[in-house]
Structures are given as structure tokens and as C-alpha cells.
Amino acid sequence: MRDFALMMIGAALVNNVILARFLGLCSFMGVTTRVDTAAGMGLATTFVITVSSMADWAVQHYLLDAYGLGFLRTVTFILVIASAVQFTEMTIKKVSPKLFQMLGIYLPLITTNCAVLGVALLLVEGKMGFMSSTMFAFASSVGYSLVMIIFAGLRERLALVQVPRLFAGPPIAFIVAGMLAMAFMGFSGIATS
């Protein structure tokens, strides 16, 4: 139990998907102009990462390993992820059309969110069991959502600030993200994994 908790904290905070592993940066920069959009994106991505990691684990275990098809890993994983995204898209469209409209182009782009494929590949590299890989995926995506929401909050403030014209928009956002990354480095003492 203790191991699980430490691993989850490690995945969410210490080795944060965005700030330490540099995965999912397109959505990190793209949809964090408002807190509610960022939260919606975080939620959708959390769902996709968790579901697709479970499916990818099964595929890796029972299909690729069993038949020695390791070289097809990239192709199969991306197919699994694309289906998970399609499923999420249909669900959101039905449940919350407003969120669907806000997320816009970024919803189908979850497929190409490197965080999703990245986490799946990390799991394969880590050779984890089903339970721990699901937990790891879930914790990673919670860390992802957390950083998305924090950063969106920062950017809402940033929009009101007078910034030199050359720095306006993305550059200042990057620098703020750098500082956030520094702050997150403070977590590195909590858990090691």
C-alpha cells in the first residue's frame, strides 16, 4: 500500500508528466488560457490516459509479447489511443456540448498528445503489473491536470499584466512555465521513482 502511494505521488508530482518529462506540451501551451477549459481538457485527458493505458497493457501483454510482435508497438498503441479518444469525443459531445465546443480542435488532438502515448510507453519500459500500471497512469494524468489548472490560473493573471511587446504571448508563458518547473523540482525529495 505504502509503495503504491509513494509511486503515485512520484508519478504525479516528482516526475510530473509536463514539467519533468516534457510530455503533452502542445495542450499545455494551447488550452491553458482559461481555467475552465484547462480543467475540461485535464479531465478528458485523464480519462483517455487511464483507459488507453489499461487497453495498451492488455495489448502489450497478450498480443505483442505473446506473439513476438514488439516492432508493431507504436502502430498498435496509437490505434488503441485513437479509438479511446474517439470514444471520449462522442461521450463529451453527448454529455456536455459546451465543453465540446470549448475544447474544439484540441479534443481530437488528444490522440497526438504525447502524454498519452508517452505514459503508455513508460509503462511498457517499466514492466509493471496491471494494477500498478493503471495506478501509475492515473496518477500521471492527475499530475497533468493539476499542472494544467495551475498554469491556466497563472495565465489568466498574466493576461492582465503589462508585458513588453516582444515577450507578449507564448514567450512569457514559457518563462512562467520554467519557473513553475523550478517550483515543482522542490518536490523531488518526497518520493523517488
Binding site: 519533468a20 516582444l166 515577450f167 514567450p171 514559457f174 518563462i175 520554467g178 519557473m179 518547473a181 523540482m185
Partner: peptide
Amino acid sequence: MMILPPGGFIVTGLLVVVKRLLDL
């Protein structure tokens, strides 16, 4: 710090500024 993750963000941000400056 430059090799660690924060450096990546900061350098990228500054290089975007450099490109804007050159364009200007």
C-alpha cells in the same frame, strides 16, 4: 539549471523573443 527541465522552458521562451526581434 539550463540542463534541467526549467532551462528548456526558459531558453525556448527567450529564443522565440530572439526570432521576433530578428523579424522586427
